Computed example of a mutant assay.
Amino acid sequence: MVVASSSRMASILRHLNNWHMTDHFQALISGEQFTSSKPDPEIFLTAAKALGTTPAETLVLEDSYNGVRAGARGGFVTVMVPDLAPADDEMRRLYTAECKDLHEVKKMLEEGKLLSEA
């Protein structure tokens, strides 16, 4: 797993360290490393490269419209887990699936509904 967030690295580390989760990720990628932010897919392409996967076999979990746009533009399996902004018609055209929470994402992965390798 990789964190590919538009947030600053200090913020990413603070949140992950608070939950003792930093070591669960193969890479941490911050939006401040790029000149263009989401919806440009560059951050996700960099994450896939760190994982050694292609976009078509890489799951992007997003709660933001620009994140969903970036995932779709990059050819990723893009799942929207809405937080503050609910999915609209544009998002429904772009994402692979919408899940109400991460438990639903896990269930879909276990059932092989998102990635064939799950």
Rank of each mutant, 00 (worst) to 15 (best):
P82K: 08
S11P: 00
V2G: 07
I29F: 12
D63K: 10
S6V: 03
D40Q: 02
V3Y: 12
V81L: 01
M1A: 14
G67F: 05
D101Q: 02
G74D: 07
E57M: 01
E111L: 13
L45N: 09
R69M: 15
L94Y: 10
E42S: 10
F76Y: 01
T58S: 14
D63N: 15
H15K: 13
D83R: 13
L51R: 08
A56L: 02
V60R: 01
H103D: 10
L102N: 08
M91I: 15
L16N: 11
V2E: 07
V105R: 11
V79D: 07
L115N: 00
A118V: 03
V79N: 10
L45D: 07
C99S: 07
E98A: 04
L16H: 11
S6L: 06
L94R: 11
E104P: 11
R93K: 12
L115V: 02
H20G: 02
S6M: 12
K107M: 13
D63S: 14
K49M: 10
L45Q: 12
E90P: 04
I12R: 02
R14Q: 13
I12G: 08
F34R: 13
M1C: 12
S64V: 09
A85T: 11
D63L: 12
A118N: 15
K113S: 01
R69V: 13
S5I: 03
T46K: 15
L51P: 12
H20C: 04
T35P: 06
L59Q: 03
F44G: 02
F25A: 06
M1T: 13
D40N: 11
M108R: 14
S11E: 15
D23K: 08
K113F: 00
S11K: 12
M1S: 15
K38A: 05
A10I: 06
F25S: 10
A56W: 00
K100A: 09
G52W: 11
M91V: 15
L61Q: 04
G67N: 03
K100W: 02
L61E: 04
L114Q: 00
F76W: 02
G52P: 09
D89R: 03
A97W: 01
E32W: 01
R8M: 14
P82V: 04
M108L: 15
A10N: 07
E111W: 03
F76A: 01
H24C: 15
M80E: 06
L61C: 07
L109G: 03
F76P: 00
P41N: 08
I29T: 10
E117M: 02
P41Y: 04
I29C: 11
F76T: 00
S7Q: 08
H20M: 04
V3A: 09
T58G: 03
H24R: 14
L16E: 11
H20N: 11
H24N: 14
L84M: 05
D101I: 01
V105P: 09
E104N: 04
L61F: 06
A10W: 01
L59M: 06
R73L: 14
G71I: 06
M91A: 14
S7E: 08
L13Y: 07
G31A: 07
D89F: 03
S30K: 07
S5W: 06
L94C: 09
E57S: 09
D40V: 06
P55T: 00
N17V: 08
G112N: 03
Q33K: 10
T96K: 07
S11G: 02
